[in-house]
């Protein structure tokens, strides 16, 4: 590990996880029922509203749709906006303390 900062002023570089693995913030996780998911059923790019409305950009508009649970904060917008109810927010089962 390098222990000397050669910068003379604060100048950041980009990297994922600036706030850590933000998946830790979740109380509930999104679970996709692919049998209901439009692009999965149609086998072609379609719908992808979960991708469009994810504030974190952690949903991939692939078939099947994928969610990066390392960073998903569990806001639940995707489940709320899914027009066919394919995403359910499921308790992480974790308890404080």
């Amino acid at each position: 590990m390098e222990d000397k900062d050669h910068h003379i002023s604060a100048m950041c570089k980009p990297a994922p996880g600036e706030a850590g693995k933000t998946g830790d913030w979740r109380d509930v996780r999104p679970v996709i029922n692919h049998e209901k998911c439009t692009p999965f059923i149609k086998k072609k790019p379609s719908c992808f509203l979960c991708w469009l409305y994810c504030p974190e950009g952690v949903i991939r508009d692939t078939i099947p749709v994928q969610i990066d649970l390392d960073y998903c904060k569990g806001c639940g917008i995707c489940a709320e906006e899914c027009p066919v109810g394919a995403i359910t927010m499921v308790s992480e089962g974790k308890h404080d303390g």
Binding site: M1, E2, D3, K4, D5, H7, I8, S9, A10, C12, K13, A15
Partner: peptide, 13 residues
């Protein structure tokens, strides 16, 4: 930082 270098805090700067 992401490359493993321990960067300054406010006081170092």
């Amino acid at each position: 930082d992401a490359e493993g270098c321990l960067r300054d805090g406010y006081m170092e700067l």
